[in-house]
Design a protein around this nucleic acid. Structure first.
Lengths: 228, 228
DNA sequence: ACCCAGTTTGGAACAACGTTCCAAATGTGT
DNA sequence: ACACATTTGGAACGTTGTTCCAAACTGGGT
């Protein structure tokens, strides 16, 4: 009947959920999502695949845990906010933090929406929604506003994850954007006037700035709605 | 050296890319993404897995082709637009069409961003960006504006796809939202004041209306930015 | 120092998957 | 009718997530 406390020392290289998740993140960052297999994980930890299942329920839990960890780290750095200016700044900081985290760990973008309302998403939603008060967004509009912001971040995350995935095996970012811009320029200007016009912008744009412009757009919409 | 023209009749039940993609969509709608295997596809078409590879390069091409087909159908229904009011209406129509299509075929939401700038995405981006002119968005801001709108749609798509996936095996939508709302209400009000406050809204909200509110938010931001 | 109940380990085995291969069947042009 | 190209579909391959279980290890009671 003794509770299974783990206060003992054991060997220094003993398996644990934390060590497994850590190794998983290393593989994900280095090899991408497809590189994370239980065999590769077992090899990196110098053990067998079966041993891992005593600490982690399965691959999905592994990915969810890794994703949550990354998000927690982002939200920990965001200061409290009271005034509208601070609220807007905080939301921008959260968004930028998410962008940078996903830029560094693209697989997070791919797995964020896979499990709806997983722990990381819940924390993120609360963190955004809790700042809307200080922005002066009326209470009845806060749910939709927070959803819009979250969904926008989610969309950028998914897109960036996809871009990174194609880049794992092949070309770098510059090259990839250049090739896409070339393709847009070769489209018929009659059927695709817009893409033709913005092809050079695609070639030279900064992902982070563009992401921020989108956040500002939503925030501007929120500000406009208050006195409209 | 004769080109491989396919003008002959052959048997009525002959395999073709179109018939394969059509069967794939049927499986995806009925069984979800995990149900689409080459063996299930072969069984439905009363053939072998190997035969399919003579018409389709692989699973990824199959999903991309199915996704593109759905998007094309959405964009075909959107009328031309010249005035600002028509432009805004057209963008709303595109967004709503995408929402409805993804509601009917959730797997589209999951695969849209997987292949960056796949044909469907390109058509969608042009379709949105081409309407910004009539909305009065200055040319230098159109690239960012179209990206923001596309990313928002992408985020909702990914989220909805995830929700539908969990629902395939388990509960219905009402039940799922109710359970999530319950969980939010059980969170500590001190740490999660926002989620606590909006739990009842989550329980009774309409996904489509919420999606539209987000689109309006971005459009409002665009309108505000013009004279700002 | 010994032993024992419980946990941890890790390699083997399993079912399912995407994909490749190839011999047979089917079709087309002469 | 014949030769040739395409299409077919079943078998086979390598890899995956997961399960299983005998062996090794651990900490507490004698």
């Amino acid at each position: 009947m003794t509770p299974p406390r783990q206060r003992s020392v054991r060997r220094a290289d003993a398996l644990s959920t934390d060590r497994i998740v850590e190794a998983a993140i290393e593989i994900l960052d280095a090899e991408g999502e497809r590189g994370l297999t239980f065999r590769a994980l077992a090899a990196r930890l110098s053990t067998g695949a079966g041993a891992i299942y005593h600490h982690v329920a399965g691959k999905e839990e592994l990915l969810t845990e890794a994703t949550t960890g990354v998000i927690e780290r982002v939200l920990a750095d965001v200061p409290d906010s009271a005034t509208p200016e601070e609220g807007a700044r905080a939301i921008t900081l959260i968004a930028l933090g998410m962008f940078d985290a996903i830029d560094e760990h693209p697989w997070v973008g791919a797995h964020l929406p896979v499990v709806p309302w997983q722990p990381g998403m819940v924390r993120l939603f609360e963190s955004i929604g809790g700042r809307l008060d200080s922005l002066g967004v009326p209470e009845h509009a806060q749910f939709n506003a927070a959803s819009a912001l979250l969904n926008y971040i989610l969309g950028v995350a998914a897109q960036n994850a996809a871009n990174a995935r194609t880049r794992v095996a092949g070309t770098g970012r510059e090259e990839f954007m250049g090739e896409t811009a070339d393709r847009w320029e070769q489209l018929s200007p009659a059927s695709y006037p817009f893409l033709h016009r913005v092809a050079t912008q695609l070639r030279h744009h900064d992902d982070r700035e563009q992401f921020l412009a989108g956040v500002d757009l939503v925030l501007a919409g929120l500000a406009a709605g208050q006195d409209g």
